[in-house]
């Protein structure tokens, strides 16, 4: 049942109308990442009345997120609430009619294989190209549109990838920066997040309401500080022999060995470790750690955090650990094994 008054202004907007609103209500959008871009997209889509949102995020709320990640509060920061959970709580207050599935974990292949076939489209709100390439191949495999978005400093870039119509990210792979130039070492201002999200969400609304003809079709970038806005027609960059979207496709980014077991988090002085074993009993681990009086512990229903030496280690229920205080993967593994076996 649509609450017509709630969406009245959106229904008045002719390209959407009653029909479009009902389509939104029937839609399922997968948002990968619940940081700055993900928070903002999720709120816009929930307010717009998209019936079902799935959010995936591996991180928890920290103080430095609050400047731009609009769904989170100081309370979330103090409680170290996982971003997906904190987002769901806030979104449920914003629009209680939307079904929200919150997943605390990595956007890894098996998970995406489960969710993507049922989603109408995927919004990219990740902070790394490993995950984007994975999303790209998943989207090609299940023939779903996905909307790339990224931000750094006052610069943003976005592109809607349509299966069999536009180039995919793999076609454009030579333009993906190889080094850490994308890390948030140069900071970010909040309005650029909103600018990218306004483009991503508008493209999503067009797709979900059957207005494909209105899609931009272009690679769009802007620098709000430099007052630049650029749009490029990139159809010519579609590769006839692309391994992800051509007839000769083999989905190289879905090969399991292309996914790292450990990863340095961008600009965070943090390493994520993803051990083989799944599901961890956080209470058991806490009990063991408490035997060491040197260790300061914090626990909530989703994670366990403790400080030791110059490191802070955060252990999640799904077995992942974030080791803060190092960018050295070997050092992070040593710390992990020393305290968590």
């Amino acid at each position: 049942m649509l609450e017509t008054n709630r969406y009245h202004r959106q229904i008045l907007f002719a390209p959407i109308g009653e029909n479009g609103q009902e389509k939104l209500n029937q839609s399922h959008v997968l948002i990968v990442g619940a940081g700055a871009l993900g928070s903002s997209s999720a709120e816009a889509l929930a307010r717009a009345g998209v019936g079902h949102l799935t959010l995936i995020d591996r991180d928890y709320v920290e103080e430095s997120n609050l400047q731009r990640q609009q769904l989170f509060s100081e309370k979330d920061m103090k409680q170290k609430t996982p971003k997906a959970i904190a987002a769901k709580q806030r979104l449920s207050e914003v629009n209680s009619h939307v079904r929200i599935d919150a997943i605390v974990g990595d956007a890894e292949i098996d998970l995406l294989r489960q969710i993507a076939p049922e989603a109408d489209l995927i919004i990219d709100a990740t902070d790394n190209f490993d995950t984007r390439l994975l999303l790209n191949d998943i989207a090609q495999k299940y023939q779903k549109p996905w909307i790339y978005g990224a931000v750094v400093a006052s610069y943003g870039v976005t592109f809607t990838v349509l299966p069999d119509k536009t180039p995919c990210l793999q076609c454009l792979q030579e333009y993906i920066p190889a080094n850490g130039a994308t890390c948030d070492s140069v900071g970010i201002i909040q309005p650029v997040v909103q600018r990218v999200v306004s483009q991503q969400v508008t493209e999503a609304l067009k797709l979900l309401t059957g207005n494909e003809a209105a899609l931009s079709g272009r690679l769009i970038s802007f620098d709000l500080w430099k007052n630049e806005h650029t749009e490029i027609e990139v159809d010519a960059l579609r590769k006839a022999d692309c391994p992800s979207c051509s007839e000769k496709r083999s989905y190289p980014n879905l090969a399991y060995d292309s996914r790292l077991k450990s990863a340095v988090l961008c600009g965070r002085n943090t390493v994520q470790l993803r051990p083989q074993r799944k599901q961890t009993d956080l209470d058991e681990v806490a009990k063991e750690l408490q035997k060491n009086k040197q260790i300061k512990l914090f626990q909530n229903p989703y994670l366990l955090s403790f400080e030791v030496d110059s490191f802070r280690i955060v252990l999640f229920q799904d077995g992942r650990a974030l080791v803060h205080g190092t960018m050295d993967q070997l050092e992070a593994k040593n710390v992990y094994h020393r305290y968590l076996g």
Binding site: G35, D124, N128, F129, V152, V157, P177, T182, I232
Partner: peptide, 9 residues
């Protein structure tokens, strides 16, 4: 027109 990809999100 010049565009470059970035990764942050």
């Amino acid at each position: 027109e010049i565009v470059h990809f970035v990764g942050g999100g």
